[in-house]
Simulated assay, not measured.
Amino acid sequence: MDERDVRLLRAITDLGTGSPEALHEETDIPVSTIHYRLNNLRDEGVITNDLYDIDLDAVGLDVTVVVEILADLDDRPAVEDEILAIEGVTHLFSTMGETDFIAIARLPDADQVGRLIDDFEHVDEVERTNSTFVIDSIREDSRALGSYEVETLLDALVDE
């Protein structure tokens, strides 16, 4: 993949459509180029259907980490916002039991796990985390690219 492919995938995520005209408006990539690239992304298995679901493994976000979080919940909405702002977090669940939240993150490689955990440690209200690598994804949200900044996606996913 190159920069244009990543920008197209992010625009599809943001707009919720694969309309070449809408993608052109969002990215300034010519419509004919968008058609060509969308066909290539389908052929490569990155775009998996006409709903423009994205196979995150095929994109390169193939490391899944589940993080259990115990936190001081004096200001629950603020804690939730801080956790959701951590790059790569695609899901956040409020839970009952020994932990307060479960977060799911999709990362480009195992080297990013340390950064992810460090980001959790920088949330003052987070008291403890327990992280688990996922061996096999049974079902995954195909719109997860929206949890990344475009520049991060470009840095992590564009082939040099």
Rank of each mutant, 00 (worst) to 15 (best):
L51N: 14
L51Q: 14
L51R: 15
Y52A: 00
Y52E: 00
Y52Q: 01
I54P: 01
I54E: 01
D55H: 11
L56H: 14
L56E: 03
D57G: 08
D57T: 13
D57V: 11
D57F: 08
A58H: 02
V59K: 02
V59P: 01
G60Q: 08
G60N: 06
G60W: 06
G60A: 06
G60K: 07
L61N: 02
L61Q: 03
V63Y: 01
V65E: 08
V65M: 09
V66C: 08
V67Y: 08
V67E: 07
V67P: 04
V67L: 10
E68D: 14
E68T: 04
E68F: 15
I69C: 06
L70D: 10
L70Y: 06
L70A: 11
L70R: 14
A71C: 11
A71H: 07
A71N: 09
D72M: 09
D72R: 15
D72V: 11
L73G: 09
D74Y: 14
D74N: 14
D75H: 15
R76V: 13
R76I: 11
R76Y: 05
P77F: 11
P77M: 10
P77T: 10
A78L: 09
A78N: 10
V79Q: 09
E80G: 02
E80M: 09
E80I: 15
D81V: 00
D81I: 01
D81F: 02
D81H: 12
D81T: 13
E82V: 00
I83P: 00
L84N: 14
A85G: 12
A85E: 15
I86R: 09
I86C: 08
E87V: 12
E87A: 02
G88P: 02
G88D: 03
G88I: 04
V89S: 05
V89E: 03
T90F: 00
H91I: 02
L92S: 05
F93G: 01
S94V: 15
M96V: 12
M96I: 05
M96D: 11
E98F: 05
T99F: 15
T99E: 08
D100H: 05
D100P: 02
D100F: 06
D100N: 13
F101H: 06
I102A: 07
I102Y: 11
A103H: 07
I104T: 15
I104Q: 12
A105W: 03
R106D: 05
R106S: 08
L107E: 04
L107A: 01
P108F: 07
P108H: 08
D109W: 03
D109Y: 05
D109G: 15
D109C: 11
A110T: 14
A110G: 01
A110I: 13
A110Q: 12
D111T: 07
Q112G: 00
Q112A: 14
Q112D: 07
V113G: 05
G114F: 13
R115V: 10
R115N: 10
R115G: 13
L116Y: 11
L116Q: 09
L116G: 04
L116W: 09
I117F: 05
I117V: 13
D118T: 15
F120C: 06
F120S: 02
F120D: 04
F120H: 08
E121K: 14
H122P: 00
H122V: 00
H122K: 14
V123E: 02
V123P: 03
D124Q: 12
D124P: 08
E125V: 04
E125N: 11
E127S: 06
E127P: 00
R128T: 10
R128A: 13
T129V: 15
T129R: 03
T129M: 04
